[in-house]
Every structure is written in structure tokens, then in C-alpha cells.
Simulated assay, not measured.
Amino acid sequence: MITLFTNRFQGFRPPQGVPVRITLGGVRFKLPYSLTHSVRELAPRRDYLNAAKPEFEKAYRADLDKLGPERVAALLRRIAEAEGDHRLVLLCFEDLAAPGLWCHRRVFATWWREVTGDAVRELGPGGAYEQGVLV
């Protein structure tokens, strides 16, 4: 079993679960935690990375559909088993605090809920994790 959450690199805290990078590029700043896991298959491709939201979402979801929920689950399950923790937090750079902002981690979350029925809660501001407590 895996339980998925999303957050940004700067907002993640170890009590939230296991941090997992889902970006093309690595983090170029100091993090107050160890980031040892990455699932590059969940990163958007460069050819549509800077596209407008409708085009980006269509291309990214096509990539996710091609990968399929079984393969995604297998990739994530390996991390959960290695860490002994079912809570995985998929991380990228975007700050979603302001209304109207979006990023691929939330597009993934919507896709995952549609194909598996499992919700993926955002742990950043206004998300499921406020003041150190899951709500």
C-alpha cells in the first residue's frame, strides 16, 4: 500500500513521509532533509515543459497514460518498501500558495485519482498538512 501526497521542495518536512523528486532537474539549493529518491518518469518532458496549461496538461497526461497506473504504482511501491514507509511525498519546485497557480504535481494528483480512485493531497499552504498535523 502507498499513500501519496504532493508538496514543493521548500515546504517538505520529514514527518510528512518520504520525499520523492519528480522533476527533470535536480535541486540546486541546500535542503534541510535528505533527498535520495527520484522518479524521473513522473517529470514532464522538456518539449512541453513551458507550454500553456491546456497544452501542457494534454501532453503530460498522455505521458502518464502511456506509463500507466500499474507501472507508476510499481515504481512508487519500491521506494515505500525500501523506506518502510507508505507515505510518499512527490516534490517539485512550484509554490502553489497563490490562487490560480498550477504545476505538474497537481496534474499528476488529478490523473492518479481518476485512474486509481486514490486521492493525492497537497501538503503545502492550504493543503492537508497545516502546522505539522494532517487534516
Rank of each mutant, 00 (worst) to 15 (best):
C103L: 12
L76D: 06
W111A: 01
W111K: 02
R105Q: 03
V89Q: 05
A80V: 09
A109G: 10
R77A: 13
L91R: 07
L76N: 09
H104A: 00
A74D: 14
L75F: 13
R113C: 09
G84C: 02
E83D: 06
H104M: 11
T110C: 10
H86R: 15
D95E: 13
L91V: 05
L101F: 14
V107Q: 03
H86M: 08
R105F: 04
A98Y: 10
D95Y: 10
C92D: 11
L75T: 08
F108G: 01
R78A: 15
D95S: 13
L90F: 05
L88Y: 02
G84L: 10
L75P: 12
A73I: 12
L91H: 06
A74N: 14
L76P: 08
F93E: 02
R105E: 01
R113V: 01
T110M: 08
R105S: 03
W111H: 07
L76Q: 11
L96I: 06
C92S: 11
I79H: 08
L76Y: 11
V89E: 02
E81A: 13
R106G: 03
H86K: 15
E81T: 12
L75Q: 12
L90R: 01
G84K: 04
C92P: 03
W102G: 04
E81G: 07
A73Y: 15
L96G: 08
A74M: 13
R78K: 15
V107F: 03
L96V: 04
V107K: 06
A98H: 12
A74E: 15
A97H: 13
E83Q: 06
A74F: 14
W111C: 01
E83I: 09
L96R: 09
E94C: 00
L96M: 04
L75G: 08
A97T: 15
T110D: 14
A109T: 05
W102T: 08
A82T: 10
A109R: 04
C92T: 02
L101Q: 15
R106S: 10
R87D: 00
R106Q: 14
E94H: 04
T110P: 00
A97S: 15
W112E: 05
L76G: 07
F108Q: 06
D85G: 09
H86E: 14
A73C: 11
I79T: 11
P99A: 12
E94A: 03
P99V: 05
